[in-house]
Design a protein around this nucleic acid. Structure first.
Lengths: 157, 157
DNA sequence: GAGGGTTAGTTCAGAAAACAGACTTACACA
DNA sequence: TGTGTAAGTCTGTTTTCTGAACTAACCCTC
């Protein structure tokens, strides 16, 4: 199995990762959600090489996560803007950040990291994300969720 | 900037991706959350080469996402089990799946994919995950969230 | 009008990493 | 003696990445 064949796996996690690309793409998405739109902004903020940034941006455009709009003709200059599909990745990045803040302290005795203050404008309070059930509104914690996994994908026990 | 230096970036997204590893690690996590514990199970389910599986598993053990327990001495056999830190990645994987199911249909006219039925045992209904605010309990959609990003990380506008 | 800054890339060679497939070890069962 | 299972390691090729230089066209300052 090659990287390039990952998109053939019939699984939403594999499909999602295939569309996003890799860690550099994640960092580019993070910066886009913070407001970055220009090539140079992405390059500076991620610290990745120019070739990587060019490659990942075109991958993300191909997969409908960004649009590439010319905002100047001579010389050609482009703005990369998140599509609705791209903006919908915000919850994924937020949960990832939340996980890191909870778990990735430097030493076990450290307090949880709080690198980014997250504020809910509806109630104007700092908060942490809580996943709830679209049907009953109660918390959907890992132990209250079961999956009906298609038989051909299921792991043999 | 090298891959190996990603963990030096003071950003929870970078830290999280550094701890997780890459797409193969994501697939390994997916399988672990489905109940896989053995090397061979991970190898079959992900389709990655044995070297990749061995490498990613040891990476994840190093980062406290899995434990490696010997369950047989001769010959040595190991079970990989998720730690609490690893289990807490479940919401991340769930949001990623949800995004793929909503957005990655084969053609624009297709209905959203529903590859895995997600059921909430509290109310016994199929559901989609909704992120809410830990303070007021209302939906925390991207447009109702603002970040207080530390100045040294902020993108210049 | 010379020089520097900005923006969005492309190109190149050498270095690093990923990868498939074969191999190893060791037991169980027939 | 042979097949199956399990958990890797090893090897040599293939692919990707890095870092630096280069292009190109405009703007601004001196």
């Amino acid at each position: 199995m090659r990287w390039s064949e990952i998109d053939t796996i019939p699984c939403p996690v594999a499909q999602a990762m295939s569309a996003i690309g890799d860690t550099w793409s994640m960092l580019i998405l993070r910066d886009a959600l913070r407001g970055a739109t220009k090539f140079e902004e992405f390059q500076r903020a991620t610290g990745a090489s120019r070739a990587i940034v060019a490659d990942r941006l075109s991958h993300l455009v191909e997969h409908g996560v960004f649009t590439r709009e010319k905002y100047e003709d001579h010389p050609p200059r482009y703005a990369y803007r998140l599509t609705p599909r791209g903006r919908d990745l915000q919850p994924v990045l937020m949960m990832l950040s939340h996980w890191a803040e909870e778990h990735l302290r430097k030493s076990p005795s450290d307090k949880p990291l709080r690198l980014s203050g997250r504020r809910h404008t509806t109630c104007d309070h700092a908060f942490t994300p809580v996943i709830t059930c679209s049907h009953c509104g109660e918390a959907a914690t890992p132990d209250t969720i079961i999956y009906d996994v298609p038989r051909h994908v299921a792991v043999k026990r």
